[in-house]
């Protein structure tokens, strides 16, 4: 009797582990710049379902301050602004955060996998920097994930190496 119960628990646990293993994360590089005036870039990571064009916001980094002055430049991530940003009320828990200095960051997107719809999806990474430029990158992936894969895309100006990691 005891052993059966244990087996049952083990099975349930195994299922849970399996469910949690579905993973979506992105490694994002903000390149260092040798410039006289540098401001951290605004960065938005969002996913658009190709068929329905529904959008799920992953991460938005912008200047968060007392007077909401930093919101003035959100529109500079212009595709993000047009597709979703302008309809949002920032800050958003779990999505918005302060800007980051140059470096490589691992961003866990597991908090939004529950919202993704099946089929082809487009993951967008958009960066805009004051006194700098704007860059948009995108990576296509199928959801749900069938096999582990990592997709890479290389930025040229405002973004560096991007690696999207998908685990079934």
């Amino acid at each position: 009797m005891v052993s059966v119960k244990r087996l049952f628990i083990a099975l349930v646990t195994g299922l849970c582990v399996n469910a949690q293993a579905t993973e979506l994360s992105i490694t994002l590089e903000i390149p260092s710049m040798n410039v006289a005036e540098y401001h951290n870039p605004y960065v938005a990571v969002w996913i658009m379902h190709s068929a329905s064009r529904e959008i799920t916001n992953g991460t938005v980094w912008y200047q968060i301050d007392e007077n909401a002055e930093g919101e003035k430049w959100l529109k500079d991530m212009r595709l993000w602004w047009r597709r979703t940003g302008r309809s949002l009320d920032v800050p958003i828990d779990g999505v918005t955060a302060a800007t980051h200095k140059p470096g490589t960051y691992n961003i866990d997107l597991n908090h939004i996998t529950g919202e993704l719809k099946p089929g082809p999806n487009q993951l967008y990474i958009e960066a805009a920097r004051e006194v700098g430029g704007r860059e948009l990158l995108s990576v296509e992936f199928d959801w749900p994930v069938q096999q582990a894969q990592s997709l890479t895309v290389q930025g040229e100006t405002e973004l560096g190496d991007i690696v999207v990691t998908l685990q079934p």
Binding site: N67, E71, K72, K75, W81
Partner: peptide
């Protein structure tokens, strides 16, 4: 023509 922010 397109603005963001709390009090543009």
């Amino acid at each position: 023509t397109i603005l963001s922010g709390d009090d543009p």
